[in-house]
Amino acid sequence: MLETRDLYKRFGGLVATNHVSLSIEAGELHAIIGPNGAGKTTLIAQLAGELRPDGGAVLFDGRDVTALPVQHRAAAGLARSFQITSVFPPFTALANVALAVQAHAGHSFRFWRDAARDGRLTGPARQALDLVGLGPRADVPAELLSHGERRQLEIAMALATGPRMLLLDEPMAGMGPAEGAGMVELLRKLKGHYTILLVEHDMDAVFALADWITVLVNGAVIATGTPDEIRSDPEVRRAYLGEETV
């Protein structure tokens, strides 16, 4: 479903993505792990189209999208969530998600009807909120939501764009244990319905959810395989996991 070929990106002298070739099958949950600064977010930004790679190609559904700008990739079904929560603080949770629904539905040159009372927007938006467990908080402005709730809102917005693939950048970052467990449950629900690329630091979550894991260090892939293969890979253990983590 999504493929990168020899992707390469540098910031000045720093190579952030070093000849990365990935292949993510439809329906798969593919996790990317790696230490801080490994280039995970940079990779997602190139997949989503926010950053142009300096070399290599990104293919979505077999089509070369390397030159396609972010909004067109999103419209083609590639949705991302942000590591640093990126929502519309003054809008209610419902309005945030309704905006995402609208992005997918098109028809944004309608000038008259009140968007907040448009069932074709709020209906699907409520569904997405219910799915992530934010249903009861629909009318609260995003700026008044807790950190964990805003992370859930991120996911709801990504889902509401009607994507075929999700790029999730550390959805559990900064969450407490209970919220984290809730997010794992949510991802389990989503798994199979969407192709998912998950960047996450929480190893328990990654090993519980992933079908496939790629390990990124200093911008380069040092290992890729099933969770079992990764767990027993000596280089990964040395470079990253540390004996006690797994």
Binding site: V70, A74, A79, F82, S86, F88, A95, R110, W112
Partner: peptide
């Protein structure tokens, strides 16, 4: 308050996010 207006307002608050939404 229309759909159109929501796009304009959304772009003021976070244009990057608007693009990521499509």
């Amino acid at each position: 308050r229309s759909r159109f207006g929501m796009v304009v307002r959304g772009a003021r608050i976070n244009e990057r996010r608007m693009r990521a939404l499509g």
